[in-house]
Design a protein around this nucleic acid. Sequence first.
DNA 1: GAATTTGTTGGTTGCGCTACCATGGCCGCC
DNA 2: GGCGGCCATGGTAGCGCAACCAACAAATTC
Lengths: 340, 340
Amino acid sequence: MAVRRRAHSGAVTLKDVAERAGVAPITVSRALNAPDSVSAALRAQVEEAVSALGYVRNQYAGALASAASRIIPVIVPSLSNAVFIEVIQGIQQVLEEAGYQPLLGNTQYDLDRESKLVATLLGWSPAGLIVAGMRHAERTRTLLRGYGRPLVEIMELGARPIDMNVGLSHVRAGETMGQHLVERGYRQIGFIGGRLKQDYRAAQRYRGLDQALAAAGLARRPPFEHDQKSSAQVGGNALMATLEAAPELDALFFANDDLAVGALLRAQREGIVVPARVAIAGFNGLEISALTTPPLTTIVSPRQQIGEIAARKLLGRIQGHASGPARIDVGFRLEVRAST
Amino acid sequence: MAVRRRAHSGAVTLKDVAERAGVAPITVSRALNAPDSVSAALRAQVEEAVSALGYVRNQYAGALASAASRIIPVIVPSLSNAVFIEVIQGIQQVLEEAGYQPLLGNTQYDLDRESKLVATLLGWSPAGLIVAGMRHAERTRTLLRGYGRPLVEIMELGARPIDMNVGLSHVRAGETMGQHLVERGYRQIGFIGGRLKQDYRAAQRYRGLDQALAAAGLARRPPFEHDQKSSAQVGGNALMATLEAAPELDALFFANDDLAVGALLRAQREGIVVPARVAIAGFNGLEISALTTPPLTTIVSPRQQIGEIAARKLLGRIQGHASGPARIDVGFRLEVRAST
DNA sequence: GAATTTGTTGGTTGCGCTACCATGGCCGCC
DNA sequence: GGCGGCCATGGTAGCGCAACCAACAAATTC
């Protein structure tokens, strides 16, 4: 008898199941992966053996043998932002139903980290990838192009997606809000946001606002920028600082609802009347934005839907269905409320 | 020449790197996994070859060969709740630093789903597991016990953890809030929450409150229960419905801050004066709870910290360090603010 | 009734990597 | 100077599964 060269993991394997069911291992494999290709009687025997032994398929062996996996990396810039959570939720729901497993990667708004993450995650031979954003390091782009599996870039809409693209135009969203504020009669309109270099989608919203102001012939200003992660607390502080620095402002467009809701709550506490003293607007359409006093004017982005659509398109391509256009604009909705 | 039996994936393999570097494959493996065990010259050659060829390690082959992986499943009941997101963030941060990869599982508060999830996730030969909660189906318990790798049950504190346990006592948290309300002079105290059968940790907080009321000789009431996912909107509605059904109430303890903040905002809009007409208290310590008018009395739970500690303890055990006590009470902090 | 097709089952091989053991060179020691 | 020990490197086999091909039985065709 040959020397046992290696301790094996001790887990129940396909072979164990096959022995118990009195069939060949490959038959068990088929019974599990393509039940229709096996007779009903055998299938029943196999199922009995599987549950009797508590067999669990070894994902590594399967993936290695078939050179295919059911892993789908999802790369986002941040987890502390409710927006990405909702997107991930949408993705997770769709993938799980189809038996795929998302692998979360967090770039922390750093393109170098993104590049390393992509390299690592490609080691899982993913069936496809979902990446937030359309700005990548050149190396990332090369890796992704070279990989040649389905890929969806999400959140924003871009001219030249690597493969597929699901998102909305943040420039147009900012422009829409700008037009709304102009129509309402505000004349001194400012933008408040943080880390716009990194959060370049917020910067795009600023750019849209700026275009609207230019078109209306109104005063244009650089954004009022702070250096902290968005939060309600920070939004409140930014409101106070900005009104002190530029008391002539009569309307403020915040980069997102976290900031705007914080500003609204702070205004209330400080006795600043919104919108009489200053109008406040946000972006995202978080639930709470509808519940403040006054409720917040904002732009609603279909966050969960972006995740769902992206996941569906990816699965469509993986499974070889036709999957519609490569680029989907999910749009946005201006929700006009009493804060403007 | 032998017939090529199978299309191989086409990716760069260890062997390719070895050929280019002029060494044996096993040496490359060592140079990458345990750089110290290889001479500096060889290491440099290997590194050159790796980057020149763009080699990415195949995770499946590695895991299969070594019967060990760097996967750590994290099983939570919900992703729509900010609480679990923060826990996951804490986990992710610690794991990523150490080169481990979390795999997210979502039970949707269903113990059967949990059981199936555990079975599937065990197929990844995880290095360890993190599971939210201490209530599991018997089958889940068997699977986990049988697996014999490090495991942390998080969020709540339990008498008989399967392995390790990081959390806080929700009963004591509820009791603490109850005592606070009693001390403040409230005499008709109610509890509002949703789906308490599933969200049994919220039910534990109710139980704590109930104990405090009993100890003080005050009226005890069943919880005012609704059948929806917690949200600010639902909290506002629950406030109105409850005050109509039981106008004698002078204090309300909400199952979480989402509900309580919603109630606070709704009260403000409806002209219900807090805390004069009714006191409002929450649980979790979300950032926004400090910013409402009046700010919300709540119990702060160290959510991100739970994730970090759990991940650290797990890694400690995986890497064979001593890792302190098996059970860690992270505690909580009563934050008394103007809403009570 | 023979030939062909169809459907079900099994044998063999290899996916890419690492565990285990073997080898050979170098050092220090008595 | 011979021995043992240590270090760096290599050879080989096997992890558990599925792809591929082969074999065979049953059903269908003419």
